[in-house]
């Protein structure tokens, strides 16, 4: 079955939700996770720390350099991601819709390259 990466994009420096809002969002996200597990779609989930905590490593010709901060200089950064299995794109898009509705951020759907073993 095809696998898809569902990435949640958050705006850096956006007003953080109030504790009550945050709790409500977490409860809704957890409910979608449970639904994914029950449907057999869930593979992996991870929430990330703020993008400012990222480090980019470049290694070439024995030289290693590091830069502080995320690779892409974008206002929107990945805040978390879920890997799912779905029968087809429409199913994956439907999970993305539920996820976006729960967390209030846009969700990018991107298929993994199919492995030859299927």
């Amino acid at each position: 079955m095809p696998q898809y990466l569902l990435s949640v994009f958050q705006e850096e420096g956006a007003e953080p939700p109030s504790p009550e809002q945050a709790q409500m969002i977490m409860a809704r996200v957890a409910a979608v996770q449970e639904e994914m597990k029950a449907a057999g779609a869930w593979v992996f989930f991870g929430a990330l720390t703020d993008a400012s905590s990222a480090t980019v490593v470049r290694a070439a010709g024995g030289e290693v350099s590091m830069t502080d901060g995320p690779y892409a200089e974008a206002k929107e950064q990945i805040g978390g991601f879920t890997v799912i299995e779905a029968a087809d794109l429409d199913e994956a898009l439907e999970w993305a819709r539920k996820g976006s509705e729960a967390c209030l951020w846009p969700v990018e759907v991107r298929p993994f390259l199919s492995s030859p073993a299927g």
Binding site: A86, A87, D88, L89, D90, A92, V109, P111, L113
Partner: peptide, 14 residues
Amino acid sequence: RDTHMAYRIPAASE
């Protein structure tokens, strides 16, 4: 091809 779009007629709800 890459996203595995289904070859079907959408359900009534969609």
